[in-house]
Amino acid sequence: MLYVQGLSTHIGKIQILHSIDLHVHQGEIVSIIGANGAGKSTLLNTLAGLYFPSTGKVTLEGEVISGLPAHKVVRKGLSLVPEGRQIFSNLTVKENLLLGMYSRYYKEKNQAKDHIEMILDMFPSLKKHIDNLGGNLSGGEQQMLAIGRGLMSKPKIILLDEPSMGLAPKIVNEILEILMRIKKEMGTMIILVEQNVKAALKVADRVYVMEQGNIALHGTPEEISMNPQVKSAYLGIKMTS
């Protein structure tokens, strides 16, 4: 279970996040939607330890993880697949995956091979590229690699920042299916940040809507998709008065 209480983040002197409350239950996919600049990435980056929160508290399975730097947050079981994929273009697919388990590599070196096999079963399109440089993959494959790499640390919760960005609908659907599989087969909690609201609503158990660094709405996908504001702002459906 992930608990976020009163989380605020400043970048420089500007307050970006305003006392965010949010939680994720065991076995849940939680989607966060919101306009460009709403603070979704800042929220995920703060959870992952890339930014230090100015106030508030984050606990994962009862353990406080707020205030830890990013490389320690991974060890506590939270993995971020950052916006724009950020794979290591100068490393091979295999090296990228192995670095994904950097935090446990020395302890679980002999399981590394099995672990990579398992990830490749989930992302079969990566198999034929295993020794290619990450930078030579297509956008969709890079996203698969970024997610696979994020899973290599066996996280309790994985955060995905706009995985559908720039990808064809068919590939977006593949990714959504993989997220469902991760939830079912691995029991990993998932936070999915999306601009693609339809995709986000499709797989989510619960949805948060962010506006200007605040949580504006919160509910089940059905409740959120029925909300008139969401309809007009995000789903492109005109309100009839």
Partner: peptide, 19 residues
């Protein structure tokens, strides 16, 4: 490979658990 990753993208490297 951890060194090369840190050279290329220190932020992403830290997300992998690399100090």
């Amino acid at each position: 490979s951890a060194l090369r990753a840190s050279e290329k993208n220190p932020r992403a490297a830290s997300l992998m658990g690399i100090n």
